[in-house]
């Protein structure tokens, strides 16, 4: 599903952010990506959804060689990848329902289809009752649930999450992670970047550890 071959990323004369990294993630896997700040976790995730290009090496996602993808192919690739960020990235002037439905709008879905599918996802994350609320009226945990619902609304093959619990109260962390496990249980390949070791210990899964851009362990 995801394959990195000798991926190297450097910005100018700075030390490499990723250094000769090779990694394979199979379809339906759940993988923790961990390491200290500056290890290259975010850069790796950005490369998977084409927000960054490697300096060298090859990256394959869902059968696409993203390092050779034409600019016009990037939107199509992104429609098969859901992304969740630490800062939620919700549109403040749109309701919860509109934020979730946003990912379906670009696919050209009808208003009725958007509402049906978005409501279904909001049901799954327990926010159906807040469909018409604006993001600023929600708690941090609820906003992250909305972001996860948006990332999953078009049934992506891959879900990438970059520190999805980083801005949340520890008591909310597990409920968010449970949503990611649910998505994984439905067949979505999930890669979660985190530096929260307690989280890794509570939810043991395959863990890829990076340090200074190098693969330190994969267990």
């Amino acid at each position: 599903m995801i394959e990195l071959r000798n991926v190297h990323k450097a910005y100018g004369d700075e030390p490499a952010t990723l250094d000769d990294l090779s990694l394979q993630i199979d379809k339906g896997e759940f993988v923790w990506l961990t390491g200290p700040s500056g290890a290259g976790k975010t850069t790796l995730l950005k490369m998977l959804f084409c927000a960054e290009q490697p300096t060298r090496g090859e990256i394959h996602v869902g059968g696409h060689n993203v390092t050779r993808l034409a600019p016009s192919g990037v939107p199509l690739l992104r429609r098969s990848i859901g992304v969740v960020f630490q800062d939620f990235k919700l549109l403040p002037h749109r309701t919860v329902l509109e934020n979730v439905g946003f990912a379906l709008e670009v696919l050209g879905a009808s208003d009725r289809e958007i509402e049906e599918r978005a409501m279904r996802r909001l049901d799954q994350v327990g926010l159906r009752a807040k469909a018409l609320a604006l993001p600023r009226t929600l708690s941090g945990g609820e906003q992250q649930r909305v972001a996860i619902a948006r990332a999953l609304v078009n049934d992506p093959a891959v879900l990438l999450a970059d520190e999805p619990t980083g801005n949340l109260d520890p008591s909310l962390t597990d409920s968010i992670i449970e949503l990611l496990f649910d998505a994984n249980a439905r067949g979505t390949t999930v890669v979660v970047a985190t530096h929260d070791h307690a989280l890794l210990q509570r939810h043991a899964r395959r863990t890829v550890t990076l340090a200074a851009g190098k693969l330190v362990s994969d267990v």
Binding site: F49, S72, P75, L76, L77, R78, R79, V83, K89, L91, F102, A103, V106, L107, R150, N154
Partner: peptide, 12 residues
């Protein structure tokens, strides 16, 4: 921000 999110979810 809106444009960034649009592109993130696959808008051309």
């Amino acid at each position: 921000d809106e444009i960034e999110i649009m592109k993130l979810v696959g808008a051309t």
